[in-house]
Amino acid sequence: MASTHAVEVGATTVVKRFRRWDQDEHRREWRALALLAEHAPGLAPTPVRADLDADPPSVTMARLDGTPLAGRLTGVQVDGLAEAVAAVQTAIPEPVLRGLPSRLLHPLVALRRLRGQCARRPPPGEDPVVARAFDEVTGWVARPRLDEVFAAELTPVFGLGDGNLANYLWDGDRVRVVDFEYSGRSDRAYELAEVVEHISVWVDDGLDASALLSRFELTSAETARLRECRRLLALFWFLSVLSEDPRHPRNPPGTAVRQAGRLLALLGA
């Protein structure tokens, strides 16, 4: 996936210039920074200024200490990640949260988009695991009950909307969060699936999904939704990897086969 923005890092500030903003990505970013600065100071960069009507628009924020999470996470880092994810989700008071727009790529929107992609794409390549995953997921994604599952309104949380591990900065003591261009009202199951199924999380076997998820107490409805959300987002990444230009791959060799295996495991769970 192409980068949605350019970043200029200064001594004390970071300027984020948006390459795409047709879904108000720049306003989502600024709104999230302002809300978190008010309700959870220190969790995310402090907003400094914004030029939201420029072409391209930009947001300037205070620079945070820390380095992006990467590689195999330690138990302390998993704890820090869980604390940061939970803090983002619960920071915004419910009356404010209910007035926010839904995060980008709502699960129902994702389902309909992925159905279209499955319907018009033949199984690419000759690897049998990839072909089998494509066949099985085509049947799963067509199930009518999924519309009801993903249209259901669970208890809302504030969603980052992006599970990329690079969005979580570790300073040796705690994890803080950056990049809010997809943010908005969401639900806990979808946001947790966003984290544990993001390709950056497992491509280096950096995170044990069960270890992170065990830090959260989910309702039975959230547990059931999480299972389907994980399948949905694993499919999203499966199709994303398959659509890469083979002349300019973004992921290591064998990623498509590994993602196919991961998707098959989730479908069989």
Rank of each mutant, 00 (worst) to 15 (best):
M1W: 07
A2K: 15
S3P: 11
E8A: 14
V9S: 02
V9N: 01
G10S: 10
V15R: 12
F18E: 05
R19S: 09
W21H: 14
W21D: 12
W21N: 10
W21Q: 10
W21I: 00
D24M: 07
D24F: 06
R27V: 02
A32M: 02
A32C: 04
A37V: 10
G42W: 01
A44L: 09
A44M: 04
P45R: 01
P47T: 01
L52C: 04
D55C: 09
D55Y: 07
P56S: 11
V59I: 01
R63P: 11
L64T: 02
D65I: 05
D65Y: 08
T67N: 09
P68R: 07
P68Q: 04
L69H: 11
G71R: 14
V78R: 14
V78P: 15
A84N: 02
V88H: 03
Q89N: 00
T90W: 12
A91L: 05
A91P: 03
E94Q: 13
G99R: 06
G99W: 00
L100W: 01
S102M: 12
R103P: 07
L104H: 05
H106Q: 09
P107I: 04
L108K: 03
L108V: 08
A110H: 03
A110Q: 13
R112M: 09
Q117M: 11
R121E: 07
R121Q: 13
P123K: 04
P124N: 04
P124D: 07
G125A: 03
E126D: 13
E126H: 15
E126V: 05
D127G: 07
P128F: 00
V129W: 02
V129C: 09
V130L: 03
V130N: 04
R132S: 06
A133H: 03
F134P: 15
V141T: 12
E148Q: 11
F150T: 00
A151S: 06
T155E: 08
P156G: 01
V157A: 01
G159H: 01
L160D: 07
L160R: 09
L160Y: 02
G163P: 06
N164D: 08
N167S: 01
W170C: 00
W170Y: 08
D171L: 08
D171F: 09
D171Q: 02
V175Q: 00
E181D: 08
S183E: 02
G184W: 02
Y190G: 08
Y190S: 15
E191W: 04
E194I: 11
E194Y: 13
V195W: 06
V196K: 04
E197S: 08
V203L: 09
V203Y: 06
V203S: 09
D205P: 15
G206Q: 14
G206R: 12
L207F: 01
D208E: 06
S210G: 14
A211F: 13
S214E: 07
S214W: 07
S214V: 03
S214I: 06
F216D: 13
F216W: 09
E217Q: 05
C229L: 11
R230C: 10
R231F: 10
R231S: 08
L232F: 08
L233K: 14
A234I: 11
W237D: 05
W237P: 10
L239P: 15
S240D: 14
S240W: 13
S243G: 12
S243A: 15
R247Q: 13
H248L: 12
N251P: 03
N251R: 10
N251M: 12
N251W: 14
P253K: 03
T255D: 14
T255K: 12
R258K: 12
Q259H: 14
Q259M: 14
G261C: 12
R262L: 06
R262G: 15
L263V: 04
L264D: 01
